[in-house]
């Protein structure tokens, strides 16, 4: 992406039922700062593909109004970039947020991912999953703050973060914050770090696979999970092909 394409003005868009927004950083008209409002009762899908390197901060704001729902997927594949992404979500009464992010760092990327989820509406619902796999010298600083406001009684929220470091020089900082100001709620979060065990690698190597092939297979399995319930079969295939090409 050319830095000249970005601007600091927050452009606002209103989304209606059935809208499916696909953003790619490699697109010419990719905007630095966008604010989306999902109308009451509308169901919206969103796919963000970060497939081009640039060193700027990007902002996305979401206003999910009452009874609306957002299925959000964010895929980060860029090389050699130092990026800061800020996602702000306001979730209204009986609104549903399903958010899934997959970050794959293969060189010396530095991801800064800051997400805020403000559950303000009664009986609002949220599931947030952030999965990352870093190799080489990739770094991740990921903060996901869930704020359950006093007005969000009967809400049900959960954030799960996974950090997979597959090299000795990869680093990560993850902070899954949970701030709760209502008592009749279900709220939880989890965070974990994992690495392929030597035993796993040995087994797969004994089947004739190289370390790189094993890692790629692992990433493709994460990609399958990321795209698992996409209804658009063509889009799903394209997405998996994109990740395969990236590897």
């Amino acid at each position: 992406m050319n830095n000249n394409k970005l601007n600091n003005k927050i452009e606002k868009r209103v989304l209606k039922d059935g809208d499916f927004i696909i953003e790619r950083t490699s697109q010419k008209d990719f905007a630095q700062a966008l604010s989306f409002q999902i109308e009451e009762g509308a169901k919206v899908n969103y796919l963000l593909i970060v497939d081009e390197a640039f060193d700027l901060a990007v902002i996305r704001q979401w206003d999910i109004q009452n009874n609306a729902s957002l299925d959000s997927r964010r895929l980060f594949l860029q090389d050699k970039a130092h990026q800061t992404w800020s996602f702000q979500h306001e979730i209204g009464s009986k609104a549903v947020l399903s958010s899934r992010s997959l970050l794959i760092g293969m060189t010396d990327e530095q991801f800064n991912l800051n997400s805020v989820y403000n559950f303000s509406g009664q009986a609002s619902f949220g599931r947030v999953n952030i999965d990352s796999l870093l190799t080489a010298k990739a770094q991740l600083n990921c903060v996901a703050d869930v704020n359950v406001l006093p007005t969000a009684q009967q809400s049900d929220t959960r954030v799960d973060m996974t950090l997979r470091l597959e090299s000795d020089e990869a680093k990560g900082e993850i902070t899954p914050g949970l701030n709760i100001a209502a008592n009749d709620v279900k709220a939880g979060h989890s965070a974990g770090t994992f690495r392929l065990k030597d035993e796993d690698l040995f087994y797969l190597r004994s089947r004739g696979l190289s370390t790189q092939q094993i890692r790629n297979l692992f990433i493709l399995s994460l990609a399958q999970s990321f795209a698992a319930d996409l209804k658009d079969v063509k889009l799903k295939e394209d997405l998996l092909a994109l990740i395969n090409n990236y590897l």
Partner: peptide, 14 residues
């Protein structure tokens, strides 16, 4: 959680 060694196994649940 600041993880500067890839072999760490961390599980956090709240």
């Amino acid at each position: 959680m600041k993880i500067h060694d890839a072999s760490a196994a961390i599980a956090h649940e709240a």
